[in-house]
């Protein structure tokens, strides 16, 4: 046996290194990749919405701001006499303060869709209305938050109140995230986050982000 090891120690050490590499990939690298995927998925669609809001915004404000005052009033007269769909908007922009009144334009005529779009965009995915920011639990990302919301889990209190049976039930629905609840100790984290005991939380789970 000793002779075999001596003769083939290079192969054996190589296998050991490969085992280490595989373990590193499983426990470190693949997790990092997952987080990146979550990030890209999370941001999908948002920029498009914001851009759409800009596209929908009536361009009159920007154009008028660039024109000299005389031309602005001329443009306003033309717009008023032609009884275009947005005369009120054009009139509002004859002021030299044309740069400011995005809101004014929104009230007048075709600005309405922009206002609606603006109302939709600002809420970040991680802080839904009527619940806690579950991503504050270490190990929970936007994807898991979406899964939890599908199960109507929205607050730290919900998670803190889980029994073992609840954990098993939820865990069974987490797909490739199975086992995370116990591994990352969500219940304990949620309990501490719910009570707001930051010192105890950071002592046990590290710094809050």
């Amino acid at each position: 046996m000793a002779e075999i090891v001596q003769a083939n120690w290079l192969l054996i050490v190589g296998a050991l290194v490969i085992g280490l590499l595989v373990a590193w990939w499983i426990f470190v690298a693949s997790r990092r990749t997952t987080v990146q995927l979550e990030d890209t998925d999370d941001s999908e669609g948002k920029p498009a919405k914001r851009n759409q809001a800009l596209i929908d915004a009536p361009p009159a404000a920007r154009k008028d701001a660039d024109l000299p005052a005389g031309k602005v009033s001329q443009a306003a007269e033309i717009a008023a006499s032609a009884a275009s769909p947005g005369p009120a908007s054009a009139a509002a922009n004859t002021d030299a303060t044309a740069a400011a009144p995005l809101g004014t334009d929104a009230e007048a005529g075709d600005g309405t869709p922009m206002a609606a779009a603006l109302n939709k965009t600002p809420a970040p995915a991680a802080t839904p209305s009527g619940g806690d920011d579950l991503t504050r639990i270490k190990g929970v990302g936007p994807k898991l938050v979406a899964l939890l919301h599908d199960m109507d889990v929205r607050s730290f209190a919900d998670i803190a109140a889980w029994s073992d049976a609840d954990i098993d039930r939820v865990d069974a629905q987490l797909g490739r995230f199975q086992g995370r609840i116990r591994r990352d100790n969500w219940v304990e984290q949620a309990r501490l986050l719910q009570t707001g005991d930051k010192a105890a939380y950071e002592a046990k789970f590290g710094r809050t982000s």
């Binding site: 075999i4 090891v5 050991l16 085992g19 280490l20 426990f27």
Partner: peptide, 30 residues
């Protein structure tokens, strides 16, 4: 048992030890 098979078993053992070591280092406390 042929020698190559013994070597293979030793390599598998070393691989398993490497996996266990990696788990202890990176996988246990997260």
């Amino acid at each position: 048992m042929p020698i190559w098979m013994e070597v293979l078993v030793l390599m598998l053992l070393a691989y398993a030890v490497g996996l266990g070591l990696g788990w202890a280092i990176w996988g246990r406390d997260t």
